[in-house]
Amino acid sequence: MDFVTSLFPWITNGPLIVVQVMSGLSVAMFLFLVSVGMSLIFGVTRIVNLAHGSFYMVGAYLMVTLAEMLPDHPLAFWLALLVAPLGVGLLGGVIEVTLLRRIYHREPLLQLILTFGLILVIGTLVLLVWGPDNKSVARPEALAGSVKILGQPFPSYYLLVLALAPIVAVGLWVIFYRTRWGMLIRAATVDREMLGALGVDVATLYTQVFVFGSLLAGFGGALSAPTVAVALGMDGDVLTTAFVVVVIGGLGSFAGSFVSALLVGELQSFGILVFPAVSIVLLFAIMAVVLIVRPWGLLGHPEE
């Protein structure tokens, strides 16, 4: 035990562990928002949207612009938090209708390559619109400080994130399991042939799903804007982590994304304490093991 505590002194520090768990949970929230959309889009359209990290980034940058544009009012932040994701949803819709729609029947590889091309295009457009410098978004006044949790400081803005997490999760659950639209999405994930038989307008459903997935990513980006430096590299960072989350959880699995986001969020939060040098390797190693043992992910379904 002495040996272990000498290596990891925080092990004996209960309150620090609690704070670490909580910050892991808020990381998980961001990961969940972006990965559930990616997973949803894959489930229905069979496209792995590599530009999903870019949508997240655009959400954060829109937040920057809205924060500058809107008058200084206590409600401005919340309005921005609402509008930014809508903007990203619109972007997603435009992309789906003008580009993706043309290639659904083509090889999956071409689809992957196309969304990769979008990363480059969106990345450059963001650079042209917002410039190369890092941006920041002020937290709303009420959540600007920090609170003490078991004697440890914890930023109050993260409390908002933690409070929103269950609301979002339950909201999505209701949408997926208690509405007709959600039923169609789940049906499409399991068996796409069935949709045609049910008389569903598949093209419209695809657009809706893509817009909804983009919207969730945009919301994740907007919500995270006050917690990070809004910068150009965000797209790649978010994409790689979200990708790992989606693969571990299972492409197309709502519950899988949830569980996997929690797992990866905590792993990142503690990984930085335990193995600062190799936490990313650890992540990818876990993903590799999952792909080898259960390529369809922890909670996904094997493809026929």
Partner: peptide
Amino acid sequence: WPLFLGAAVV
């Protein structure tokens, strides 16, 4: 350049 490259790929 990346814009051009991305657009070319698309």
